[in-house]
Amino acid sequence: MTAPSHFDCSHVREILSRVGDKWTMQVIVALRERPHRFNDLKRQVGGISQQMLTRTLRVLERDGMVTRSVCPTTPPQVEYALTDFGRSLAEPVRNLAIWVQTHLATIHENRSRYDME
């Protein structure tokens, strides 16, 4: 396997930036267990505005990680779910969150030590 070129790295950086976004990670985690309707999802992702949730869901849908299903009811109900592709990202995101929780105290100690120098 050859090392990625600079061009390839820019694509990786773009996707990591999007996936690592505060709201994207929380939406993926919220959808990991089951599909949610918009307002339910908004409650699950505390602090997100309606506009930001809409924007985040559109980006995830465009990238093929989330599906949007409209139920034929009056008024129409919309449900969001992870695709298999999105679910494949949910596990690494979960592992990263576990790593952060495991090492958070060490990170804070290191920051304090650095800041005191």
Results as ranks from 00 to 15, higher is better:
E61Q: 08
A3S: 13
L89D: 00
T73D: 08
L89V: 05
T2K: 13
N95L: 15
T102H: 13
D21W: 05
V45E: 01
T83H: 07
R37I: 05
L41S: 01
P92C: 02
A105C: 07
H11M: 11
M65S: 06
L53F: 08
V70G: 04
A30S: 07
P4C: 07
T54R: 15
P35N: 01
D63H: 08
Y80L: 00
V66M: 01
D63M: 12
V93H: 00
T102A: 15
V19I: 15
S10L: 14
L16T: 10
T24K: 01
H36S: 01
F7A: 13
E117Q: 13
I28Q: 00
D21K: 04
R68I: 03
S17V: 06
L53W: 04
R87G: 02
P76T: 06
N39L: 08
L96T: 14
T24A: 07
W23V: 09
G47H: 06
L60H: 02
E33V: 06
H108W: 13
G47C: 05
V29K: 03
M25K: 11
H36N: 00
M25I: 13
Q50N: 09
V59Y: 06
A3V: 11
T74P: 04
Q101Y: 11
H108N: 12
R37S: 02
E117T: 14
G46N: 10
I107P: 04
F38W: 04
H108K: 10
T83P: 02
T54H: 12
V19A: 13
T74G: 05
I98V: 15
V27H: 00
R37W: 03
R111E: 11
R94D: 11
P72R: 04
Y80K: 01
P72Y: 05
R113E: 09
I48N: 02
D21A: 12
D84L: 11
E109A: 14
G46Q: 11
S10G: 06
V12D: 07
R58W: 06
L53N: 02
N110G: 12
T2L: 09
M25P: 04
A30W: 00
E14I: 11
H103R: 08
F7R: 10
R68E: 10
F38V: 00
S112I: 04
T74A: 10
Q51Y: 08
A30N: 01
R18T: 14
S10Y: 15
D63R: 09
E14G: 07
G47Q: 04
V12P: 03
S69N: 08
G64P: 06
L82G: 01
V66G: 00
R13N: 09
Y114R: 12
T24I: 10
G47D: 03
R58L: 11
Q50A: 10
N95K: 12
R55F: 10
L104A: 13
R13E: 14
T83W: 04
I28C: 01
L31G: 00
W99A: 15
